[in-house]
Write a protein that binds this DNA or RNA. Structure first.
Length: 468
RNA sequence: UGGUCAGUAGCUCAGUGGUAGAGCCCUCGGCUGUUAACCGAGUUGUCGUAGGUUCGACCCCUACCUGACCAGCCA
């Protein structure tokens, strides 16, 4: 293309038009409307903006009869033309084409993505193409904005982004089944005298797995760097077939030194509100789309979280509220049970109609590392519950006393030896510290209203499914 | 891993124990400002797979495959 016209993105043309200027646009045809009496309209999208750019193609272009009819959805094009005020009502600006070049053709007989409605389920078979749709490109941009909002929130507050390992020898947390990482010959692995696979002969000289959480390592750095956070992939080999589980997902885990549960709860509330405020500000078109096409109440739900103080109460108080409610639950409420999603959602949606932070859970239903309260029965745990989804954040103040932690490890039937380094953190200059974990895809689900977690990560991994 | 539901045209879906349907897509015709374009015509089928019941099965039964949802586990 010999023309020296300024290359611009669709976003730039639509957001800051320069009427009268000649512009060079490159993108993909989303749809084409033609009047065979002599005018064709192209909707061109280049990924920079939710909206398409309307390109008006006049019939006097030399390739009007030969190439323009072949501009099927999915074709890539270059357009040179003038930015003008649109005569149509649906857009302020459009491009009056002087030259349209078909760069890459797209055969509609073979192309899986069409103008017609497609189910999410169908599109899951085309994860490499589904970002060409409105829904999936909107999700991709929201995901990006949320990622940067996460970094922005912590960086502004002086938190250090910590890269915790993907491959780990820890299986201490018991957060679920882990993926084994091994270079041993699976047909003939070395075996010890007992006939078991001998992982001391493996690559690392030990059995290792993909991480299920960076929390324990984050604690190590918090106990020197002050405040840190992780944001990276984690892995669970659970055979879960639900709309809320992935085998590979991203997790955010801040950890603060010299901090107690109250600091943790405040951080969680500020964090969630910052994320929602940012996405509502930076993705208004995408959010409007989710409201219209995905979840009609999404904006109200997010506003409710953004504009209400989070309600704090203890697990014990929550159990009392639930028992007094007179509501019949599928699972009866008794002190000591782990609250079901029906209970959590009842609290946040019906009782308080606001986000709820529950604290001080029975120690038997929580992890070994959570700080035991003076009552000896509960731990300094917190769950943040939001309307529409239930638990979105789980956190705790960590046990900082070596003897109590050792006792808890035994109590939970875990091995003490692999946690020697974790105990060092309590031996050498121990401090109160606290943190929480947020499943990033569940956050994206919450923000977009998307029902299935497989649709909010670009390339989902679930049991039996790994398309590309 | 258990329970429930589903599988019909390339896509989204109707459908009935007795000739296989619509809309979209695509093709052709019409229309000089469309925008979910519109109007008219046309092309498109192993009704998930394998058995069984029946004069006759897309429909009823059984098994299997695949998917979704719910529960458990969790984030």
């Amino acid at each position: 293309m010999s023309d020296s016209a300024l290359k611009r993105k669709v976003r730039e043309v639509l957001v800051s038009p320069k009427l009268g200027d000649t512009v060079h646009i490159q993108g993909w045809v989303r749809t084409k409307r033609e009047s065979k009496a002599g005018l064709t309209f192209l909707e061109v999208n280049d990924g920079s903006y939710f909206q398409n750019l309307q390109v008006v193609v006049p019939a006097d272009l030399p390739n009007y009869a030969t190439e323009i009819p072949k501009l099927y959805p999915g074709s890539s094009v270059a357009v040179i033309g003038k930015e003008v005020q649109s005569q149509g009502g649906k857009q302020a600006v459009e491009v009056q084409a002087r030259q349209v070049i078909l760069i890459g053709a797209c055969d509609p007989a073979l192309y899986p993505i069409g103008k017609q409605k497609m189910s999410y389920e169908y599109l899951r078979d085309f994860t490499h193409l589904r970002s060409r749709t409105n829904t999936f490109s909107a999700i991709a941009r929201v995901r990006n904005v949320l990622s940067m909002a996460i970094h922005g929130f912590f960086q502004e507050r002086g938190f250090l982004w910590l890269h915790t390992p993907i491959i780990t020898a820890n299986d201490a947390e018991g957060a679920g089944q882990m993926f084994r990482v091994s270079t041993l010959d699976m047909d003939k692995p070395p075996r010890n005298e007992g006939g078991e696979v001998d992982f001391s002969k493996d690559f690392f000289g030990a059995g290792v797995n993909l991480t299920v959480s960076g929390q324990l390592e984050a604690e190590a750095y918090a106990c020197s760097m002050g405040n840190v956070y992780t944001f990276g992939p984690t892995f669970r080999a659970e055979n879960s077939h639900t709309s809320r589980h992935l085998a590979e997902f991203w997790m955010v885990e801040p950890e603060m030194a010299f901090a107690e549960l109250e600091d943790d709860a405040r951080l969680a509330e500020d964090f969630l509100k910052h994320l929602l405020r940012t996405v509502l500000e930076k993705c208004p078109l995408e959010m409007e789309f989710f409201k219209q096409r995905v979840e009609p109440t999404i904006l109200e739900t997010l506003s409710a979280v953004l504009n209400n103080p989070f309600k704090r109460l203890t697990y014990t108080e929550a159990v009392e509220v639930l028992k007094r409610s007179g509501e019949t639950f599928k699972y009866a409420v008794e002190w000591g049970i782990d609250l079901q999603s029906e209970h959590e959602r009842y609290l946040t949606e019906k009782v308080f109609k606001a986000p709820v932070i529950l604290t001080d859970y029975p120690k038997a239903i929580k992890a070994f590392y959570m700080k035991v309260n003076p009552d000896g029965k509960t731990v300094r745990a917190m769950d943040v519950l939001v309307p529409g989804i239930g638990e979105i954040i789980g956190g705790a103040q960590r046990e900082d006393k070596e003897e109590i932690l050792a006792a808890r490890i035994k109590e939970m039937g875990m091995q003490e030896a692999p946690l020697w380094w974790y105990q060092d953190l309590r031996r050498f200059g121990s401090v109160p510290h606290a943190g929480f974990g947020l499943g990033f895809e569940r956050l994206v689900q919450f923000v977009t209203g998307m029902g299935n977690i497989r649709d909010v990560i670009p390339f989902p991994r679930t049991p039996g499914h790994i398309h590309i």
